[in-house]
Amino acid sequence: MDTKKVKNSAHFVLKNRLLWLSLLGLLSTGALTSCGSGIEKPMQTNMPGAPAGGTAQQAAENMAAVPQADTAVGATETPRTLPQLIKKGSLNVVVNSIDKSLKEVSSLVAKQQGDLMGLQDNKPKDPSVRRKATIQIRVPQNKLETTLDQLAKLGNVQNKSITAEDVSQQLVDIDARVRNLRKSEEMTLKIMDRSGSVGDILKVSQQLNTIRSDIERLDAQQKTLRNQVAFSSIALTLEAAVSATPESQPSVGIRMQETWGKATHSVGEFTQALLALMLWLLAFSPYFVLAGAVFYGVKKWKKNKSLPPASRPDAGYDP
Rank of each mutant, 00 (worst) to 15 (best):
Q257S: 09
D219Y: 02
A291Q: 09
A235K: 13
Q169S: 15
E269M: 14
S233K: 13
D173A: 13
V252Q: 09
G292E: 08
A273K: 15
Q221M: 11
P246N: 05
I191G: 03
S168Q: 05
Q221W: 02
G292V: 08
A276I: 00
R182T: 03
T237E: 12
Q158N: 12
S232N: 10
R212A: 05
R177D: 02
I234C: 05
V294Y: 07
R255L: 11
Q222I: 01
G253T: 10
S195A: 15
T188R: 05
S161V: 01
S197D: 03
L218P: 01
K190D: 12
V229Q: 14
K183W: 06
Q158L: 12
Q272N: 13
K203F: 06
W280H: 10
Q221V: 06
T271Q: 15
A276L: 09
L189F: 00
S213P: 03
S251K: 10
F295C: 02
S197Q: 01
M278Q: 15
K223T: 07
S232K: 12
P246I: 10
T271V: 15
L181R: 01
K223V: 04
L236P: 06
I201P: 00
E165V: 11
L236A: 05
Q257E: 13
I162F: 05
L225R: 02
S197K: 05
Q170S: 13
K160L: 01
R177A: 04
K299S: 15
T237G: 07
K183M: 10
A230I: 06
K300T: 11
D166E: 06
A291L: 11
T237V: 14
P286M: 03
Q222T: 08
R212N: 12
S168H: 03
R194Y: 07
V172Y: 05
F295M: 02
L290Q: 07
Y296I: 10
N227A: 11
S197G: 05
A263T: 06
M256D: 03
T259K: 09
E216H: 12
A235N: 12
G292P: 00
D200C: 01
A241V: 07
Q170I: 06
Q228D: 15
Q222A: 12
E247Q: 09
V178Q: 02
A276N: 11
M256W: 07
M256N: 12
L290W: 09
G155T: 09
T224N: 08
S184G: 05
G196T: 13
A240I: 11
K262P: 01
I215R: 04
K299F: 14
A235T: 12
V172E: 08
L238I: 06
R179F: 04
I174W: 00
S168F: 03
L154I: 04
L208G: 01
W301Q: 10
V252E: 06
R255H: 10
L279R: 13
P250Q: 07
R182W: 00
Q249Y: 05
G292D: 12
D214N: 15
T264C: 03
A293N: 02
H265D: 14
E239P: 04
L274V: 14
H265S: 15
N209A: 15
V157A: 02
Q170G: 00
N209H: 09
A164T: 09
I162Q: 10
S243Y: 04
E165G: 00
